[in-house]
């Protein structure tokens, strides 16, 4: 949370996002359920959850497109429609946002620049920034999915905003595009901007994000730095001819560790380090055949968290 404040000369300011007790009900469906989290400037935050978890609805509430049933969501302490010239403060690219197929990318951005009070000279700048410089005159109808994603991003960048809210920006990008997006988002956050990126696949944003906000069926599952999630994924694998005794010894000595017996007879110990496990075995005089640190695939941790059986 302690990145340097953006410099005074920057035209934009990264502002924190705050979601407080947000609830949205569509008829019988509770899309977002008492959701609270914060997003800090200068960091890339991954907003994660399976499809249908309520990510897009949350973002649409934050951006004033959907009226919440209760709760608030603010950008730098203000709700979206109270921000004068919001495009200069928040840039966003949302799912289910389209283009008129008969309009050129350049004209699409010109319309937005007029509507939001951004200098039209920004249009060629952002087109170049997202690598669409040569395709600006073409009708969007002929664009590939990846090009449309880039155009969405260009629209978000139009006002040179300090806050970026991007809904599944990697969808439709090829591996090269994803690598480009990754470094681009890191660069933007490095400048002190607030970057919130949603995704339904953790591995997609794993190398990009500093923090994660994980939701499932409309509720917050976990908000933490990504590092904590990585630690959570770490565990110890230990093999012994006498798993029963080792298990009892470990449970007694390391009450916070969870010990499980795998199908092939090894024990896995989460929330523990190999030296702790080795020490317990040595003290109990139990013979060990294998002792190593391992890590669960982060995606698996994510799946476990969002399956609904997590706190």
């Amino acid at each position: 949370m302690t990145r340097s404040e953006p410099t005074e000369t920057a035209p934009w300011t990264g502002r924190p996002l705050e979601v407080r007790g947000l609830t949205k009900r569509f008829g019988d469906v509770l899309a977002v359920d008492d959701l609270s989290f914060e997003v800090s400037p200068g960091r890339v935050t991954g907003f994660l959850g399976p499809n249908g978890a309520g990510k897009t609805t949350t973002l649409r509430c934050l951006l004033g497109l959907v009226a919440p049933t209760s709760g608030t969501s603010t950008i730098g302490g203000r709700v979206y429609h109270e921000i004068p010239s919001p495009a200069l403060v928040v840039g966003s690219a949302l799912e289910a946002t389209g283009f008129h197929p008969g309009r050129s990318a350049r004209d699409h951005l010109r319309v937005l620049s007029r509507a939001s009070g951004v200098d039209e000279r920004r249009v060629p700048v952002v087109l170049d920034q997202v690598g669409l410089g040569g395709a600006g005159e073409r009708s969007v109808g002929g664009y590939s999915l990846g090009m449309r994603q880039r155009l969405q991003l260009a629209a978000a960048l139009l006002g040179d905003p300090g806050v970026l809210v991007l809904d599944e920006p990697a969808n439709g990008l090829d591996p090269e595009g994803i690598a480009w997006l990754r470094s681009f988002l890191r660069y933007l956050a490095g400048e002190g901007r607030t970057v919130l990126v949603s995704s339904h696949v953790l591995s997609e944003v794993e190398q990009t994000v500093d923090d994660v906000v994980i939701i499932s069926v409309g509720r917050l599952v976990r908000q933490c730095p990504l590092v904590e999630l990585t630690d959570h994924a770490a565990h110890v694998v230990v093999r012994t001819p006498d798993p029963g005794s080792l298990r009892s010894a470990l449970t007694a000595a390391l009450p916070e560790a969870a010990v499980a017996l795998t199908d092939d007879g090894a024990l896995t110990v989460s929330d523990a380090r190999p030296e702790q496990v080795g020490h317990v075995a040595h003290a109990a005089g139990i013979e060990l055949h294998e002792l190593r640190a391992a890590s669960t695939d982060l995606e698996e941790v994510f799946l476990t968290l969002t399956r609904g059986d997590a706190p």
Binding site: L65, P86, L94, T97, F99, H100, S116
Partner: peptide, 11 residues
């Protein structure tokens, strides 16, 4: 064409 989102985000 779902451009209303962009329209209301701009204003």
């Amino acid at each position: 064409h779902q451009t209303l989102t962009s329209t209301f985000l701009a204003e």
